[in-house]
Design a protein around this nucleic acid. Sequence first.
DNA 1: CCCCTGCTTTGATCTAGGTTAAATCCGCAG
DNA 2: CTGCGGATTTAACCTAGATCAAAGCAGGGG
Lengths: 231, 231
Amino acid sequence: MDKRPLQIKTQAFLANLPIFTDMRLEELDRVAAATLQIYAPKGQALFHCGDPCTGFHVVVYGQVKLGFTSPQGIEKVVEIVSPGQSFGEALMFLDSPYIVFAQALSDSMLLHVAKHAVFDELARDPSFARRMLSGLSRRLHGLVRDVEAYTLRSGQERVIGYLLADVADVTGNGKPVEVHLTPGKSVIASRLNMTPEHFSRILHELAANGLIGINGRAITIPDLERLRKSA
Amino acid sequence: MDKRPLQIKTQAFLANLPIFTDMRLEELDRVAAATLQIYAPKGQALFHCGDPCTGFHVVVYGQVKLGFTSPQGIEKVVEIVSPGQSFGEALMFLDSPYIVFAQALSDSMLLHVAKHAVFDELARDPSFARRMLSGLSRRLHGLVRDVEAYTLRSGQERVIGYLLADVADVTGNGKPVEVHLTPGKSVIASRLNMTPEHFSRILHELAANGLIGINGRAITIPDLERLRKSA
DNA sequence: CCCCTGCTTTGATCTAGGTTAAATCCGCAG
DNA sequence: CTGCGGATTTAACCTAGATCAAAGCAGGGG
C-alpha cells in the first residue's frame, strides 16, 4: 500500500493542532514519522487504567471518552474528547501508568504520537516547549473549573454549564441555538457526575420553564442569554 | 539593609525546588534577581480571584490555601500548599486571570518568581522546560486524582485518603503513626468537600472502630495497614 | 485566674440526588 | 411490517450528607 498520502494526511492533521502550529515542515516530518494511525470502532478501548504510556493521542474523527472505574465497577466519565483535541500528554512526563481508561464512543480515527518524538522536539525547539506548556496549562485550568463545578454547583447549574459550553462559539444573538447531545445522554450525565435519571429530570425541568426545547437528542435553546442568566 | 544574605537565601530555597535542580549558579542568580520575598501574616490574601498573574509562588514556610468563592459566598478549598511546594505556574502560560484565590493559613513566607524570568530560562534551557512540564504534569495528575475522589469516593474514603496521604512517606510498620491536622479541621473538611460537622462525625466514627485515635488536632493511626485496607 | 472568641462536637431535621423498578420510545435487522 | 435490545423517561422511595441549632472546649489577652 502506498504510504505517502497517509503520511501527508498525518502531517496536515498535526499541523492544525495548536501544539504543532508554526512548526517547520522538516520538524513535522520527524513527528509524523513517529505517529501511528489508529482506527477504533465504537466501544473499543484505546488503553486501560494501569497501562503504561508511550505517547499521546489526537482525535481525528469520532469521539472518545476518558474515565475511571470504581472498585465497585461503577464508571465515571471525566472527559469527552472531540476531533482536534488531544489527551494523555501529561503522562508522558511522568513515569506512571494511566489512571483513567480511554474508549471510543463512536467509530473513531486517532493519531498516536510517540513520546520520544515529543522529547526530541522539546530538546530542539524552545517554542515547542512553550506551546506544550500552554497546552498542559489549558488542560489544568479546565480541570480546576471542573472541580469548581463538581464541588459547588448544583446539578441544574452543571447541566446549564454543559449546554452553554457546547455552544460557546455560537453567539446566536436572539436566534434559537441547537445543541446535539452526541454521545448519548447517559455519557453526558456521567461526565456531569449525575445519574441518567437525574439528568433527564433536570432537562425536562428546564424545558418546563421554557429555557430549552427537547427533541430526542436535539436540544433547542430559544434564548441563550436567559439560560445563561438562570445559571 | 544588606541584601546579599537574603539573595543567597533565595537562591538556596530555589535550588531545592524540583523545578530548579541542576541549574547552574549563574542561571539561579538570574532567577533569584526576579524573585520577590513575600511575608504574609495569617489570613492575608496573596491574590484574589480575577487578579492578573505575574509569576508563580513558592511557600518557604507557613501554609497557604487555594480556593473558590461561590456566588453565594461559600468558600471551597481546592488545595493546601505546604513549604517547598509552589502554585500558580499554569496561569503564567495562559493569558487569563486567576480563577482561585490564595490566602495564608498561618504566618507565611513565600517567594514570587516573575513570569519573565521563567520565560527567559525556558528559551535558554530545554531541560528547564522539561522539568517545568513534569511539574505541571504532576499537578494535573493530582487534580485528576482529586476529581476521582470527589466523584466516586464516599466521605469516609476521602478522609482516610487524606490521612494516608499525609503520612505517605512514613512507613511506620507496626508502629502507631501520628498525623497533625495543622490547618484546622474546617479547612481540611472544605478541602475534602464536606462540612466540618460531617468531617467531625467521620473522624469519630473511625475512632469508634479503633482505626484512629483523636486527641484534638493530633490523630494517631495504630495500624496503617488496617486503615488502608478499610478504604 | 477568668472571660471572650473561635473552633469543634453533638443532636435533630431536611433535601438533593441516588436507587429501584417499570413503562416508553426508537432505530433497525430480519 | 415487526420484534428486539438499548436508551430514555417516569414514578416511588431511600440514603449520604447538608443545614440549623445548641452545647462544649481551648487558648490567649487582660
